[in-house]
C-alpha cells in the first residue's frame, strides 16, 4: 500500500491538493494511506520549500502549486 503525504501549512492550495488526491483515490478504488503534514518543522525535514508538496513512500514527487490531475493519476497507477 502506498503512503502519500501532503505537505502544507493549511493554505487553500494545500487543501485543494489533498481533496484532488482523495477524489482520484476514490475514483480509482486503490488503497492508499493518505496523511497531511502541517507542522513547519516536519515539512522542512523533506527539503520542500514551496508548498503544497507531495511525498510518496518517503520520496518528494511534487512541490509548489496544485498538481495536475494527470500527474495525480500517474502516482496512483
Amino acid at each position: 500500500m502506498k503512503n502519500i503525504k501532503v505537505l502544507g501549512t493549511g493554505c487553500a492550495n494545500c487543501k485543494t491538493t489533498l481533496k484532488l488526491i482523495e477524489e482520484a483515490v476514490a475514483a480509482k478504488g486503490v488503497a492508499v494511506q493518505l496523511e497531511k503534514v502541517e507542522e513547519i518543522k516536519d515539512i522542512m525535514g523533506y527539503g520542500v520549500m514551496s508548498t503544497p508538496g507531495v511525498v510518496i513512500d518517503g520520496k518528494v514527487v511534487h512541490a509548489g502549486g496544485i498538481p495536475s490531475k494527470d500527474k495525480i493519476d500517474g502516482w496512483l497507477s
Partner: peptide
C-alpha cells in the same frame, strides 16, 4: 520566482538551510 504567501516560511527556512 513563483511565490505564494503561504509558502513564505518554508521558503525562508529553505533559503537559510
Amino acid at each position: 520566482t513563483p511565490f505564494c504567501s503561504c509558502s513564505a516560511v518554508p521558503l525562508f527556512i529553505g533559503f537559510l538551510q
